[in-house]
Structures are given as C-alpha cells and as structure tokens.
Computed example of a mutant assay.
Amino acid sequence: MSSVTIKSLITQDEWREAYPVMKHLRTHLEEKEFLELVEQAQEKDHYQLAALCSDGKMVAVIGYMPMITLYNGKFIWVCDLVTKPEVRSQGYGEQLLSYVEQWAKEHGYGKISLSSGIQRLDAHRFYEDKMDYRKVSYVFLKDL
C-alpha cells in the first residue's frame, strides 16, 4: 500500500521539484520561466502550489489562487492541475482538488472555478462526473 501526502510548495527548491510534473501540462514553459512566473504570481496574486507525493515521489501538482470578481464573488481559481501521465486515474487529481476545496472552505471561500482546454475531454468528464463541477461558460483568449 502506498503512502500519499499533500504538501504546500513554498520554496524555490520545491517549485523546481514540481516543474517536471507541471511540464506535462504547461509544455511551453522552460524551468527558468516557470520559476519566475510562480514567484511573480505568489507575490502579486497569492498563487499557491501544492503537490501530491506517493511513496515520497511527486506525482501530481495543483496551482490555485484566491480571487474576487463581481460574477463569482470571493472564490478560488484553479490555474493548474496535472498528474504525471503514467499514474493518472489513481485518484491523485481528485485528492488534490479536494485539498483545495477544503482549503477554500477553511479560508471563507464559497466557490471554486477553473477552465479546461476544449480538447481535454477526459478532464471534462473528471470535473463534471467525478468532482461535480458544472460547465457554466466559455473562456475566450486574445493574444496581443
């Protein structure tokens, strides 16, 4: 039976350890840019990273941040959620998302929101069928 732990990642060394996992989701980021973006996001937007370790090995990572908007009020935005491909479908994503849901409740946040690429049908089934999230909008993006 494997030992599973979830820990908040707060140091640059911990972020560096998370990079190989995050690279599966954010394939466009090199390590240096990843570390710079995490640092800026933590300083400016209170971005948080947490990792799930199985038998001492980091296998899944989640990034999230508290926000306030007129649409959602006070809520948590899940920016990133990724599990290493070779260990997917073992409940790690569910555990990390549940961890963030618990964190949100403990800190007075009533909602969690996220976006998922339109091509990620397996992820959509996970969010809707397993985690009880609803599709409520489209996200639009324009490069400037």
Results as ranks from 00 to 15, higher is better:
13 D>R: 12
16 R>S: 03
16 R>L: 07
16 R>F: 05
17 E>T: 15
18 A>G: 04
18 A>W: 07
18 A>P: 06
19 Y>N: 05
22 M>G: 00
25 L>Q: 02
25 L>E: 02
25 L>K: 00
27 T>V: 15
28 H>W: 01
29 L>A: 06
29 L>R: 01
30 E>R: 12
30 E>V: 10
30 E>C: 10
31 E>K: 01
31 E>W: 08
32 K>S: 14
35 L>S: 02
37 L>R: 15
38 V>K: 04
38 V>Y: 02
39 E>A: 01
39 E>W: 07
40 Q>D: 09
41 A>E: 07
43 E>I: 07
43 E>K: 11
46 H>E: 03
47 Y>H: 01
47 Y>R: 00
47 Y>N: 06
48 Q>I: 08
49 L>T: 08
50 A>C: 13
51 A>D: 05
53 C>A: 13
54 S>T: 15
54 S>K: 15
54 S>G: 14
55 D>P: 07
58 M>K: 04
58 M>R: 11
60 A>N: 08
63 G>L: 11
63 G>R: 12
63 G>I: 14
64 Y>L: 07
65 M>E: 15
66 P>E: 10
66 P>Y: 00
69 T>L: 10
69 T>R: 13
69 T>K: 12
70 L>R: 05
73 G>Y: 14
73 G>T: 14
77 W>K: 04
77 W>T: 00
77 W>C: 08
80 D>L: 09
82 V>W: 05
84 K>W: 11
84 K>G: 04
85 P>Q: 11
85 P>F: 13
86 E>F: 13
86 E>G: 06
86 E>R: 11
87 V>Y: 06
89 S>C: 10
89 S>W: 10
89 S>Q: 07
90 Q>C: 09
92 Y>A: 09
93 G>S: 07
93 G>P: 10
94 E>A: 12
95 Q>A: 12
97 L>E: 06
97 L>F: 12
97 L>V: 15
97 L>R: 00
99 Y>C: 00
99 Y>I: 08
100 V>K: 06
100 V>F: 11
101 E>Q: 14
103 W>G: 08
106 E>S: 08
107 H>V: 12
110 G>Q: 13
110 G>C: 08
110 G>T: 07
112 I>G: 03
115 S>A: 03
117 G>N: 09
117 G>S: 07
117 G>W: 09
117 G>K: 03
119 Q>W: 11
120 R>N: 11
120 R>K: 04
122 D>C: 05
122 D>T: 07
123 A>T: 05
124 H>Y: 02
125 R>E: 11
125 R>G: 04
126 F>T: 04
127 Y>C: 05
129 D>L: 12
131 M>C: 06
131 M>I: 06
132 D>I: 05
133 Y>F: 12
133 Y>I: 03
135 K>E: 00
136 V>R: 04
136 V>N: 06
137 S>K: 02
139 V>D: 06
139 V>Q: 04
139 V>L: 01
140 F>P: 05
141 L>A: 12
141 L>S: 11
141 L>I: 13
142 K>S: 00
143 D>L: 15
143 D>A: 15
